[in-house]
Amino acid sequence: MNETALLIHDAAHRLFTQHVTPEVLRRAEVGEWCQDLWDAIDEAGFLDTLADADTPPDERAANAFVLLKAAARHLVPAPLGETMVVRALLAARKVRAPSGPLSFAVLEGHTHQHGDHAHLKGRAPRVPHARNAQSLLLGTPDGRECVLIATRRGRLSQDANIASEPRDDMAFADTAGTTVPGISGRDLKLAGATLRAIAIAGALERVLMQTVDYARTRVQFGKPIASFQAIQQQLAVLAGHAAAASIAAEAAMAALFDPNRRDLAVAVAKIRAGEAVAAGTAIAHQVHGAIGITREHSLHYATRRLWSWRAEFGAEADWAEELGRSMAREGGAGFWPALTR
């Protein structure tokens, strides 16, 4: 970790430890917006971690990874990553970012230029935190521009993921917004998949720590269950998945803004992190026993998010099919060179 990343790591954990309390998570669960937490994040200057032009791009990515993994360990119930990505994309194109939380999504529909304005028509399903976001950045998968639009200008239908995080459907009937050139919906999908891979990595680390703690304190047959080899071996497997998910997510973040490397790295991260969810959550719940499947125990704050995040911005099978097709085109002899490029 570079020195700045270390500072960000410590500052982030301090802030999140103070502000993401069990009470904040409970309130988020019933749909309450965490304004105090958001204000603290904003004041700390975290939102421009990816946008800051004074920092070299690779350091920005390293800093963002540290910050977002910390946020995921604490399960920050706000669109921190989404806002960071939108602010970075806007800053790179000299578009002023609106203040407040932001989000983004891939648009099913089309955009067209009309005078100074871009117009949007279509729907954007399951937009992260749309109801809490001031503005949204939307683009079609193959378009060459995105549109920044105030959320209130679209029609919003509330929905949520397994963990009760807002995932709202947005509909637009020829709605005007600001054109942001040079970004496609594909860019947004890659960024979203990277954010979710990092979030999975952070939450899996939380689950590992929590399950180790539980195993060391829970006594059965007269001793902590951590002393049973059956439990030890399972937690070792969980540790392996957490490690693999984390390094894959870190590699995706490092490659996200490099057109030559990003498709491979992001696909790898979303696939590997997604696979880690199935194995990791199963082990965590098995070790916790019945208390882990109650609402009053806090394990579910992480596991229900993990089950949601693996499906968002492309499930493992989607990314694996894309990656597999591109690898198949390399042929048997080209597979290894392509993987190590």
Binding site: A244, A245, I247, A248, A251, L264, A265, A267, V268, I271, R272, E275, E316, A317, W319, A320, E321, E322, L323, G324, R325, M327, A328, F335, L339
Partner: peptide, 15 residues
């Protein structure tokens, strides 16, 4: 088959 190849590539890359 494409999915299986993609998954192998992902696991190998992470390893």
């Amino acid at each position: 088959t494409a999915i299986a190849i993609g998954r192998m590539a992902a696991r190998l890359h992470a390893l």
